[in-house]
Write a protein that binds this DNA or RNA. Structure first.
Lengths: 141, 141
DNA sequence: ATGTATGCAAACGATTTGCAGGCGA
DNA sequence: TCGCCTGCAAATCGTTTGCATACAT
């Protein structure tokens, strides 16, 4: 099922801003802020408004087409979401972001935490920060 | 070593705003935003300025006395840091935050990711979200 | 004594809201 | 056609900066 169909089925319309935002993120190799998405989007469609970028991101995130990433500094980055995987690995040097699977690997830790704290763990936020292969080669920044 | 001594040894002064911020966080049972810390702090010391709260948090975080927490919605929460542990578990119902150890439990996952992606993983951001024991009892909100 | 740290006010920047008109289904 | 969606402008909110003064060491 295409993303256009997914939007439609969820009751949302396929519109220019949503199209453009998604295209920009598809072409991006690192998380982009709404402002950055807006700037790049305008090169594709000059009348794109910043407000629509915010609203498009909201809808696309709810539809699972886009994922927000969190970092120690700013928490306003967005990347394209690949369904089923929800961990992100970010290069601290070039900013490149990669998604990876592996939710299962947390189950041991989660079991342990549940036993120790009495919490029922329902969700988690995991992001790894490091250096990607090319950046490791060009010396530690 | 007391936190006052830790601050001094690191070259910082022990001042009223830092004292108050720390006290507020000691008494808090959930992550507080700078604004919330300011409001509560004023009840202890009415002349406390909001700007000083921001600056105090910056210093206290650098000194490892306070930890910033990130959540899907807002990323502006602060809690008291217990040295050596840096994972946080937050109850989605009452907001209670608990720290827990277990960085080692991630090493398997990290090894795997490094092999698969070529990244060198240096740091990570892990937070668990769930229901604490009391909140589990009072029915799922 | 001296230089860091403070509070206030103002600057700044990002995000949200109100509204008249446009466009997707 | 109908109502969701858009762009713009303005309101809003959180955070940062400039500066004269206060206080920790």
């Amino acid at each position: 099922m295409s993303w256009e169909e997914r939007l439609n089925q969820a009751g949302w319309r396929v519109t220019m801003p949503r199209r453009v935002v998604l295209r920009v993120l598809q072409q991006a190799r690192r998380p982009l802020s709404p402002q950055e998405i807006h700037a790049r989007g305008r090169r594709i469609h000059p009348s794109l408004g910043l407000v629509s970028v915010y609203r498009a991101l909201e809808v696309l995130e709810q539809a699972g087409l886009v994922r927000r990433v969190h970092r120690e500094a700013r928490c306003d980055g967005y990347i394209l979401a690949s369904p089923g995987h929800h961990h992100v690995l970010i290069c601290r040097r070039c900013g490149r972001a990669v998604e990876f699977p592996g939710a299962e690997d947390l189950s041991g830790l989660i079991d342990q935490v549940e036993r120790r704290t009495g919490f029922r763990v329902e969700d988690h936020l995991l992001q790894l920060i490091g250096l990607c292969a090319p950046c490791r080669g060009s010396g530690p920044a």
